[in-house]
Design a protein around this nucleic acid. Structure first.
Lengths: 228, 228
DNA sequence: AACGCTTAAGCTGTACACAGGTGGGGAGTC
DNA sequence: GACTCCCCACCTGTGTACAGCTTAAGCGTT
């Protein structure tokens, strides 16, 4: 199944898939913020290939609704509308509990190690907030959790909604440094407890809980920006 | 959001999107059965365009896992493995109840008319089964129901799982003519009752129920083919 | 000075040519 | 006759040139 698997397991990626993953990562990480214009020629030069594979990558990304290509104009990264964000979050709230109930993969030693590692980094983040680090920790946490999903379809959907939510979520996080760091620390504490117990079901519900918190933060942010 | 919306509302489709929709339809309808080799040059000639838009369309379809492209060999339509089918159906069982609960669109007069129309065709099908007609009725029923979904993300996911399940499902249906026709007739009776009451929630649960039935049929089929 | 038109620059969409890779069939040998 | 190896036909992957579209800037007119 699609890209999520490719990003998690280190498989042999074709050139096109690697480029797709990289561009999508840049969008999620706000390296390409909403409004940013992606020029095929520019990217082609950067990756050292022709426009063809770039076009292919962008075209495949477009189904997430994160970019919009118009003939003669260009390809721009778009911020999902408030309604779309609501839809994505509503969906994530429903998907999260399924992580643990739909034939999950069993937790390994290595999963626990990664969890601990992330927790340490989150603790460091509480002392000195760094937007970029916050994003990276969250991203790796999502890779870890997505890897626990045994159902390929759910895994794909889970990853898709993450990518759709990421950009907006990380944009909001910039304005609430310490609160976000503490929330992440708390989440990772819970996740690690569940990892040690080998309880994937719990992880699903923990995710559901914290997505709810994040949703609240984003909703209040959306309200305040809509007033302007 | 992606293709489902485009297939349902009659919007202005770009060339590439139209081709994508058409190829995907052919896969769902078993015009391109598993094993069929898709040659870019052939399709290009048929649609009267160059290979470029064809490649684009196939590339975007590939994320559903229904086709596999290997360099030097070609692009072949693949049958989803038993495990993948199980994953898709498990997911559909979870998604179905959400149709009515996640901000559905309200039912219009025109929806009811289409429902009645489909019911009549289903009744005709009971008297003289026609595999092709069975597929078409089901397809249009799915377009109708997908159109009732207000949440764009859910709509996209619902449509994706339908496409993934369709090919296998329709393959199985070939071997159980009358049983399938009767089941479809029963389903459409229930759907129409819910349509008349304007109860989208009911439609979600009806779908959930009948997907369960279909799942059973496919499971027994998978078991019998695995033995061979 | 303000408005409208024209033109050119720059982007994507498409066609086409070529490079790379794969598999099968035929010639040659044992 | 069977097996092996090589070559060629055919397909996808990539690069490149060109056509079409959009926008903005600059010029001319009022």
């Amino acid at each position: 199944m699609p890209f999520p698997r490719k990003t998690i397991a280190t498989e042999i990626e074709s050139t096109g898939e690697a480029i797709q993953t990289e561009i999508l990562r840049r969008i999620c990480f706000l390296d390409y913020p909403p409004g940013k214009q992606l020029k095929e020629a520019e990217l082609a030069a950067e990756f050292g290939v022709s426009r063809t594979p770039i076009r292919d990558a962008i075209s495949r990304i477009s189904h997430l609704g994160l970019v919009e290509t118009r003939n003669g104009v260009g390809t721009v990264v778009v911020a999902l509308s408030a309604t779309q964000i609501r839809h994505v979050y509503d969906m994530r709230l429903e998907l999260a509990p399924l992580i643990g109930t739909m034939s999950p993969r069993s937790i390994t030693e290595s999963d626990c190690e990664i969890g601990q590692e992330l927790l340490q980094e989150a603790k460091a983040l509480c002392k000195a907030f760094d937007s970029r680090k916050y994003i990276e920790i969250n991203h790796r946490l999502h890779e870890l959790i997505t890897g626990l999903i045994g159902n390929g379809t759910l895994r794909s959907f889970w990853w898709q909604t993450y990518c759709q939510a990421a950009s907006t979520w990380y944009l909001v996080s910039n304005q609430r440094d310490s609160e976000m760091a503490l929330a992440l620390d708390a989440e990772l504490n819970e996740i690690n407890a569940a990892l040690d117990l080998g309880d994937v079901t719990a992880i699903g519900f923990i995710q559901r809980t914290h997505i709810g918190y994040g949703y609240q933060r984003i909703k209040s942010h959306l309200l305040s920006t809509e007033r302007e």
